[in-house]
């Protein structure tokens, strides 16, 4: 493969990264359901997102040659929208924490008490 365009994906790359993306989506779904700290759920949401993007990007690179630019443009749009959604989500988490002194949804248990400032 010497002399080839270094940015042209190898023939196996779509398969490898699609399967990796599938694993990440599953990992993120597990995290979104199993983790109770809300900031961790925001992280899980981002892991699901990047897994889906990888899967989608692997589809764009399928069949060899230059990857299709339309999925790439959609993925860039998706990455930016994921950041906006995350920013809104973490602001909501911080507002909840300020009012209730915990970053756990009501009815999903409590945070272990901190030594210094635990409200109520």
């Amino acid at each position: 493969m010497t002399g080839a365009d270094p940015f042209l994906p190898a023939a196996h790359a779509p398969d490898v990264y699609a399967l990796g993306g599938a694993v990440l989506v599953g990992l993120g779904v597990w995290g979104l359901l199993a983790l109770r700290h809300l900031l961790r759920r925001v992280v899980a949401f981002n892991v699901i997102g990047s897994g889906i993007f990888l899967f989608f990007g692997a589809i764009a690179a399928r069949g060899g040659g230059e990857p299709d630019p339309v999925p790439q443009a959609l993925i860039i749009t998706g990455i930016v929208v994921a950041l906006s959604a995350s920013a809104l989500a973490v602001t909501l988490v911080a507002a909840l924490a300020q009012r209730r002194g915990g970053a756990v949804l009501p009815g999903e248990g409590r945070q272990p008490p901190e030594a210094e400032t635990d409200a109520k």
């Binding site: 994906p9 190898a10 790359a13 981002n46 990047s50 990007g57 764009a60 790439q72 993925i75 990455i79």
Partner: peptide, 16 residues
């Protein structure tokens, strides 16, 4: 980068 999507790689590194 390995998938040949350098534009996306830049966006992922900077934003993601």
């Amino acid at each position: 980068v390995r998938l040949g999507a350098v534009n996306v790689a830049l966006a992922e590194a900077a934003i993601g």
